[in-house]
């Protein structure tokens, strides 16, 4: 083979190879033309949220108390890298621990790192499953987490107050009984039973 014919064959190979590569590409797109589209028609078909989906935090509702268990320890406020949690709490009448009276999360700032959930000592924080929040104003993303617990919280505190009051009454009764120990030993026994409860 002379040099020129070799060059010609190379040229031909290049041109035909190029043409073939174009046809191969077109074959791929043609094949995909007849495949099923993979589009998820979002507002019509809602996506299934994943198992561990992370969104704004929410408070856990516990079975036995029917309310949250935020004790306003402020650990989540301190660890939050986005400084988006604001909690206020006080010690309600009849409870030994503090309770949250205000719990605001600014989801617009939140970076869903989950550090607050990690540090929570009472495990009362969880991820909510909100995924389609839109608003015209930033402050619409400031969530008041206690809203859904208002009634339950009132009931819980009332119950706690009553229990504490009952306990207090029993205590006073016992104290009174102790004072009258000599005269009425039977009453002292009764108050002992109450304390053991």
């Amino acid at each position: 083979m002379t040099a020129t014919t070799r060059a010609k064959t190379n040229y031909l190979v290049t041109v035909l190879g190029g043409l073939f590569s174009l046809l191969a590409g077109m074959l791929i797109t043609l094949r995909n033309l007849f495949r099923r589209p993979v589009t998820e028609q979002y507002p019509k078909s809602k996506p299934a949220l994943s198992k561990n989906f992370r969104s704004a935090i929410a408070l856990v509702r516990f079975e036995e108390t029917q309310t949250h268990d935020c004790v306003a320890c402020m650990q989540c406020v301190q660890i939050c890298p986005s400084f988006c949690i604001a909690i206020e709490g006080d010690k309600p009448e009849g409870l030994k621990r503090k309770r949250a009276t205000e719990f605001h999360v600014d989801y617009a700032l939140c970076s869903v790192c989950g550090l607050c959930i990690d540090v929570c000592p009472t495990n009362t924080l969880k991820y909510s499953r909100v995924y389609d929040q839109v608003a015209y104003r930033r402050d619409a993303f400031v969530y008041d987490l206690l809203t859904e617990f208002r009634d339950a919280e009132v009931a819980y505190l009332e119950k706690a107050r009553q229990e504490a009051a009952a306990k207090e009454a029993a205590k006073q009764a016992a104290a009174a009984a102790r004072a009258n120990k000599d005269t009425a030993p039977a009453a002292a026994n009764a108050s002992k039973e109450l304390e053991n409860d």
Partner: peptide, 30 residues
């Protein structure tokens, strides 16, 4: 389309699709 598969796999375990915060000092969250 292929990348979406990865995002779904990772979303399922980490809870995020793009900006993961999956690691913790000493291990992982989930």
């Amino acid at each position: 389309d292929d990348r979406e598969q990865i995002l779904e796999i990772l979303d399922r375990v980490t809870g995020s699709r793009l900006t993961y915060c999956y690691g913790r000092f000493g291990g992982l969250t989930e």
